[in-house]
């Protein structure tokens, strides 16, 4: 079902009617929906990005859930529980979006626990202090929101819709983290030190969440052309830093970058050199907690296997029973 744009087929690439329709939809800033024709590369790119994003939410529960049982007040305990619970929900929304592209949650989970799937490297860092609950909310969720708000307009409908819901729910995540740090900075000397130390540890990894520099980001250009991604990595990183500087001033914390300075010409905050060696090390599985994170996910999945099987078996039995009863009645 192909047609050529011009009669001279030797000079132009043949493009199918479906592909033309797809291109037109992208061009018109419309949305691609699950049953639409799409290039295989687009589908693969989306499955890769959405499942990575889902895995990040799921693995991302761990560094924070470490502190649920030790939260220092009942109010903080409730907030943290609600937040980590949201992350389970967000992972679930995203797995559902990927599922519309033919990837099943079971397969994606298997890939994750087999160590074959990627997730955001930031969650391979440990959370030794309570202040890390503040830094994760303020810096990690802050960076995530910068990344995610543009994704609400991603060209793939189910992804965009999942992101809308996620962004809406996440609006409290960053604030609660900021307020944890605010409380610590207004507290005792020890608490202030705890906050600053934590910001020191999370600041650079948070900046790395936007991904490698644009000239070193192999998938970015195509994702932008397909409008899965709306802004470049460096662009988003710059916006994030511009946002952080005044917030850090409110908190009274120092951002650990001696080269950070305001550039009068660009009216932006210029940042110092990012140590990408560390990023690549963690990405390559040589971060502090990679093995532990995967093991815990695998344990939860494997220990839950008998429960999932039990419920599925019960459903089959109930279905068989109802069918028998209906047949007997008719």
């Amino acid at each position: 079902m192909t047609s050529t744009i011009t009669p001279d087929t030797s000079a132009t690439v043949a493009i199918s009617v479906e592909e033309q329709q797809f291109n037109d939809l992208i061009e018109a800033d419309s949305r691609i929906e699950p049953r639409d024709w799409m290039p295989e590369g687009y589908r693969k790119s989306l499955v890769r990005q959405i499942s990575q994003h889902a895995h990040s939410e799921i693995i991302g529960m761990q560094p924070e859930s470490n502190w649920i049982t030790r939260a220092p007040s009942l109010k903080r305990k409730a907030i943290l529980m609600a937040k980590v619970q949201d992350e389970a929900g967000h992972g679930l929304y995203l797995y559902s979006a990927a599922q519309t592209l033919g990837a099943t949650r079971d397969d994606m989970t298997d890939a994750l626990i087999a160590g074959k799937a990627r997730y955001s490297s930031i969650f391979n860092y440990p959370t030794p202090t309570w202040a890390d609950m503040g830094s994760i909310g303020w810096l990690v969720d802050g960076a995530a929101i910068c990344n995610q708000v543009p994704l609400c307009r991603a060209s793939y409908g189910p992804y965009g819709r999942a992101m809308v819901r996620i962004c809406k729910e996440e609006s409290f995540h960053q604030r609660q983290g900021f307020e944890i740090l605010l409380e610590l900075m207004a507290g005792t000397e020890e608490q202030r030190e705890m906050a600053q130390d934590s910001v020191n540890r999370w600041y650079w990894p948070a900046l790395m969440m936007f991904g490698p520099p644009d000239d070193d980001s192999p998938n970015s250009a195509q994702s932008m052309a397909w409008k899965i991604k709306r802004h470049s990595n460096d662009d988003l990183r710059q916006r994030f830093v511009n946002m952080l500087v005044p917030q850090a001033a409110v908190l009274g914390v120092t951002l650990p970058d001696p080269d950070l300075h305001f550039n009068e010409v660009t009216q932006q905050w210029d940042l110092g050199e990012i140590d990408w060696t560390e990023f690549h090390e963690v990405l390559a599985g040589r971060g502090p907690n990679n093995a532990q994170r995967l093991q815990r996910r695998r344990d939860a999945h494997e220990e839950g296997q008998w429960v999932r099987e039990a419920a599925a078996a019960y459903a089959r039995k109930q279905y068989a029973l109802t069918t028998t009863l209906e047949m007997a009645a008719s």
Partner: peptide, 11 residues
């Protein structure tokens, strides 16, 4: 939370 048999049950 983060250890349940399925994500729906975490929630």
């Amino acid at each position: 939370i983060s250890r349940a048999p399925e994500l729906e049950e975490d929630v």
